[in-house]
Amino acid sequence: MFSTWRALSPRARREALEAYLALTPWIIGFLIFTVFPIGASIYLGFTQWTIVEPPEWIGLDNYVRMFTRDPLFWQALKVTGLFVLISLPLKLILGLMLALLLNLKIPGMNLYRTVFYIPAVISGVAVSLMWMWLLQPDTGVVNTLLSYIGVKGPNWFWDRHWALPSVAIMSAWKVGGSAIIYLAGLQNISAHLYEAAEIDGANPWHRFWKITLPLLTPTIFFQLIIELIDSFKVFTEAFVITQGGPLKSTYFYMLYFYEEAFQNFNMGYASALALLLTSIILATTVFINYTSKRWVYYES
């Protein structure tokens, strides 16, 4: 580093100094808001700390407790894992279908695009309150509509079998967010490819499987990772609507983390919980990244 510095001309040195000056806010912010908290979290995960007294080193106890004698931890992990399994495919597939529709070359499509994206800009709290009202067992509009076709709707958020699917339905309403990202990917696919395929007699079905889907794999890959991280972080919906109930059937991991950290002030244990969640997210991301060589198509 210093030898490169000496090799610089006075003008280049001046430019470098100006750059470091401009970067100062980011460097300070990086140390305070990234390096320090991550380091501290790793350390705190090995301690017992209730914020009043200084943290006490207890080695791996937090992690041992988590895996061997904490049923709530397993419940939170199960709920979150199940939710990922339900909502991730739902969002990826519905998002793609919606994007294919929005990509139809007909005039006025912008209006539809605007409409479908609205749910994605509304706050989680507002959406939660709204769906709570929509899914009321007796007076809710969803069960009313179902009754018109002779189906007796479930108790949704207030039934332990239906609560988690209800949260997934609610998050599927925001599918316009993924659709817009897919749409950008679709619009990057060259029209020549479709024209050539059409001339060769490929029907729309073939064109989708042989052109659209392979060329869209980078977008699908990107979405998979973003949505995965998002699904692991579900908090607002559970906090506002169900508080984790009924019978802990929507006890999401982040809700458990929040209660441990900011209601019970078991900061040491909560740090270990956060660290484990981060490791799960990182490991899954790395795994998907590893498999991507097999299924993601990159144009050379």
Binding site: T34, P37, I229, K233, M267
Partner: peptide
């Protein structure tokens, strides 16, 4: 590269130390 990698980091891991700070 460091700056880009912080984009990927899930925010919840930072909450407790920042709260105590």
């Amino acid at each position: 590269v460091l700056m880009l990698s912080t984009m990927m980091l899930p925010g919840q891991i930072k909450l407790i130390p920042l709260f105590s700070m």
